[in-house]
Structure formats: C-alpha cells, structure tokens
Nucleic acid binder design. Structure first.
Lengths: 216, 216
DNA sequence: TTAAATAGTTAGATTTGACTAACAAATTTA
DNA sequence: TAAATTTGTTAGTCAAATCTAACTATTTAA
C-alpha cells in the first residue's frame, strides 16, 4: 500500500491546519495526532518524499497541490460518511464523527461515489462543513461567527466550527440545529453573553458557544 | 488495539477452515492469506496467547469458543455489509466482496447493528451464506449441492459455495440468481454435465458450476 | 542583545507483522 | 521400513510507525 491510515491521518491534520495559516508547524501536528515530535518529523520527511509536502529543515511545512488533493479526498470520504450516517441511517450528528474517522480510510472509491449519488451530491456535511467533490474541489463560502453579530440582527445557523460531541449534545438540548433562524436581542458588554430568540423562545448563549456558531 | 486487521484476517480464515474440518493446518492458512509459513506460525502463537486458539507444536490447530465467537463477529460484519451494499446501495452481488473485506474491520458495533436493523435482521447474505446474529449464532441449515441431484428433481437455488467475482458474473450472464427454480433434465454420465431448465429456458451447466450451487 | 524558552532534529530502541534460510517432525510412498 | 516428500518450526532480518533521550536552531523576553 502506498497510503496507510497513518499517512492519511497526518495528511488530514496538515491540510486542516494549512487552511487556517498556510504554513504548518510540526508541534501542532504532534498535538493534533497525540504523537511525539520525532514521530511527526520522520513522517513529514516521508510525506515530503512522496511529494505531498515541501520540507526544509527548521522551515515551516507547506502542503503541495498533490498533498492538498489527496487530503481533500480523505475529507470527502469523512464528510460524505457523516452525511450518509445522519441522512440514511438515522444517526444523530453527535454520533457520527467517530464512525467516520474509521470509514474515511476505506479505499473503495465506488463506495463513496455511491453514497454521494444516493445523497444527491450534498455540498455540506451535517455540521455544515463543505464536502469536496470527486475532483477535490469544495465550497469556500465563509460564514460569520455569531459572536461577531450585533443586536437586532436576524441570522440563520449555517455551520459549526471546532465541534465536539459534547458541544453537539449541548446544541441538541437547546434545540439549536442548522437552518434555525436566530434573532440577537442583546449582547452583554461585560462577558459577551448573547440573549437570542429562536423557535419561539429566548435563550442566553455564552461567548464560548457563540464563537462556535457560524451564521449568515 | 488488541485486535488488528491482521489478527482479524487470520481468525476469519481459521474459522472458515474449522467449519469444514474442525482441525486446521498451518499450510492452508498460509495459502488462504498468501503469507509465508513462518508468518502463520508466529501469528498462531500470538492467537493462542490471546486464548483464541489451542496450539501445540506439530499438532493440528483448534479454534477455541472465544476464537469462534470473535470470528463470527467479523463474519457478521462482512456479510451484513454485503447485504447492505446490495439491498440498500444498489451494488451487484459480484461487486461487494472487496468492499466488505475492508468494512469488516470497522470497530463501531452501532454501525453494523444499525445496518442489521435497517435490513430487517437478515439471516443470509446476498450469496446465501448465513449471517451470525449479534450473539454470534447463525443458521446451520445445510443445502445440497446441485451436482448431487438427480434427473427430474425440481430444486431452488439457495446459496453458493466458494464464489469468486468471475463465477458471479457467469451466473449473471446465465440468469441464475438465488431463488430461481431449476429442473434437472439430464445428467451426462461421462462428464456430469447437467442439462437443466429454469426461467423458461434450458441450459447445460458444467460439473464445476454444479458443484458450487447449493439448492434445496 | 544575550539568556531562557520553544521548536525542530538526530540517534537509537521498540513493536508488529512480514520475510528467507535452515532445520526438524510427520506423513507418504516405493 | 527406509527414503522422499510434505508440513511445521526456529533463528534472524526488515520495514513501518512509534517512542525517549540528547542535541541544535530559532524565537521571545529580560
């Protein structure tokens, strides 16, 4: 095999970090994968040898076009799987990440293309993250953070940043789902708590929560 | 991880051979997995250490109850996946083995239990092989080989033994599918070719083909 | 602007699961 | 039953992916 699960996991992490900052550093990869720095160093050299990264000693890493494409295909598998699990198998959005982490390493292209077709070629996964198409391209539309919105705005919840299963369960308990219209009633100056209205009720959302909700 | 994909593949092969003969020998495992004899030898010791096999030097191997159960769970995953791919994702029965070989190593129990539920707890996979339930038990009903049937018998195709994708494509081309009623018209004494009738036509099936078709 | 802290690297060990070469036991067959 | 063949085992090697310990380069801050 030319690409092991390990390689795929590194590539995915590197790709995700490259979206934010373009340059990627070794330490952040080590943290994301919960692996030692020397492990990252040796894998990085290997990936560079495969033409997936540009590597020079002590310089920040850069992902190549080839690396970006391969990473996009893995993320495609992950997000299609999440969508399939929610839409076609009845799982909750807080249950699917773990399962998709495993399924994303399945090699069969036909399997994922069939999922894609059955789902009607969705552009976003259940958490609002874009799903790369079979060429590796995906929607780049940027949403605003709810925490950057002002009182009296009426916005729609479109996606989540940095989710965890715990956060998703919290959102379930508050009746917050993608597509919900939220009106900002008040922003507390002191701690940036937001008083909002949606689904016929009012709630107070902490700054932490608001910084993870993407709206438009 | 206490069970790697490698361990799972060994266990599956050993289990399948144990069905036929109870005793299992090292060489047949090596052939089935396309691996060297010393590789099998060292893995067998490891599996014995895990309580999945009984091993004594130069003696035939025996699978333990624990090993049998673990193997059944892997086979359950494989066969449920095949059934799901055919019934819910529109794949042909000749396409699903390869994909299921990969999916059978997914750890999530919920994923397979959900498949099982969606499929209505099927007892057999698309090739007629029994699917172990979530406790590891499965149908043991034995079918007859078509090659053991006599002229003038009317039988129903129930399952296949030793299938390959090529054989399945051959069956597709002949319009042979599970559930088809087959009447045996004549058995050629010399080469055991069978002249049979089904679906409003007659065909001549070779002894090789007849020895892979299970009927009742 | 140098000392301290952080980030990255090298060397060498470990584990897993494979391999080849050499050998030993068991079985088959002449 | 003795020789030949087949089957199983041991010893030692290798590659992948991890680790710790020790070291070097870069960045930050006193």
């Amino acid at each position: 095999m030319t690409n092991s699960q390990s390689i795929e996991n590194y590539l995915k992490v590197i790709f995700n970090q490259a979206i934010a900052t373009d340059d990627v550093n070794t330490t952040s990869i080590a943290q994301a994968l919960e692996v030692s720095l020397p492990s990252v160093n040796s894998m990085v050299k290997k990936l560079a040898g495969m033409g997936l990264l540009e590597y020079e000693k002590y310089k920040p890493l850069k992902i190549t076009a080839k690396g970006r494409k391969m990473a996009a295909m893995i993320i495609r598998k992950h997000r299609l799987t999440e969508m399939y699990l929610v839409e076609k198998m009845g799982f909750g959005w807080e249950e699917v990440h773990e399962i998709a982490e495993q399924l994303e390493h399945i090699q069969s292209v036909a399997f994922f293309d069939r999922m894609d077709e059955i789902l009607g070629f969705p552009e976003r996964d259940p958490h609002g993250s874009p799903i790369p198409n079979s060429s590796g391209e995906f929607a780049t539309q940027k949403f605003r953070l709810l925490s950057d919105c002002q009182p009296n705005e009426l916005v729609t919840l479109k996606a989540l940043s940095k989710t965890t299963d715990e956060f998703l369960k919290y959102l379930n308990s508050k009746g917050l789902a993608l597509g919900v219209e939220v009106e900002i009633l008040k922003v507390e100056a002191y701690d940036k708590n937001m008083k909002v209205a949606y689904g016929g009720k009012t709630e107070v959302l902490s700054a932490l929560v608001c910084s993870k909700l993407l709206v438009s």
